[in-house]
């Protein structure tokens, strides 16, 4: 066992432990803010795994997009909907949890069986290592050009869609008198449309 190989193994075990414990924390912790920060830790550990796999560009994209954008967006959403509410108890919740845990364990057993029994074609061709970024660029501008352009259209659509969905229909001036409107008052006066009267 060479030093490089054992270092790689130790790094993998540490990153895998962070990923698994962080993911369990994300789904199990009751405080959602802790969950969001643990999710950022999971994303960073996954980026570390990509570095172990000789993929520096995707690791950088993972840090920039997931930790920098998605996680911050989730934190903002948590702050915007930050209401401590006591969730109404549901009948048979522990049974539901157990059943879904059983289903997930079954799915996991299936995946493990597939992973262990399939004869993977390893080792494949030699990894190109540092040339990966150039190769990704070649792919994006030759054989994956159409998906690349479609991704830009998708991002534009998502941006416009998010703005349209999250926008508030509040005028800056009062339409009747023309005076500047008190935003706080409008927020308070506006009643939610779909508040239900207890469980139906």
């Amino acid at each position: 066992m060479t030093i490089a190989a054992s270092t790689q193994l130790i790094c993998f075990v540490a990153l895998a432990a962070v990923v698994v414990i962080g993911a369990l924390g994300v789904v199990l912790l009751s405080n959602i803010v802790y969950s969001a920060f643990l999710l950022g830790g999971v994303f960073l550990a996954v980026a570390g795994l990509y570095l172990l796999l000789n993929a520096s560009f995707v690791a950088a994209a993972q840090v920039l997009v997931y930790v920098g954008a998605v996680n911050v967006l989730i934190l903002f959403a948590i702050m915007l909907v930050n209401k401590r509410e006591d969730l109404a108890p549901i009948q048979g919740l522990p049974l539901r949890r157990l059943l879904s845990a059983g289903v997930c364990a079954g799915l996991f057993a299936l995946l493990v069986r597939v992973v262990v029994t399939t004869p993977w074609a390893v080792p494949g061709p030699a990894a190109i290592g540092e040339g990966a970024t150039e190769r990704i660029g070649e792919h994006l501008f030759t054989d994956y050009l159409l998906p690349f352009e479609l991704a830009s259209v998708l991002l534009l659509m998502a941006m416009i869609g998010a703005i349209v969905l999250a926008r508030r229909d509040v005028q800056s001036t009062d339409l009747g008198t023309g005076a500047a409107a008190d935003q706080g008052l409008i927020e308070k006066a506006r009643t939610p449309l779909l508040v239900d009267q207890g469980p139906s």
Binding site: A55, G124, H139, L140, A151, L154, A162
Partner: peptide
């Protein structure tokens, strides 16, 4: 491990990251 020469999986991963970002934005909206 399997496609070390052409690394098409990395290109797919970049696309998945893109779609995930769009999904997160629209989902949170």
């Amino acid at each position: 491990y399997v496609d070390g020469d052409l690394i098409r999986g990395q290109v797919f991963a970049v696309f998945v990251i893109t779609v995930a970002a769009a999904e997160a934005a629209v989902g949170l909206a």
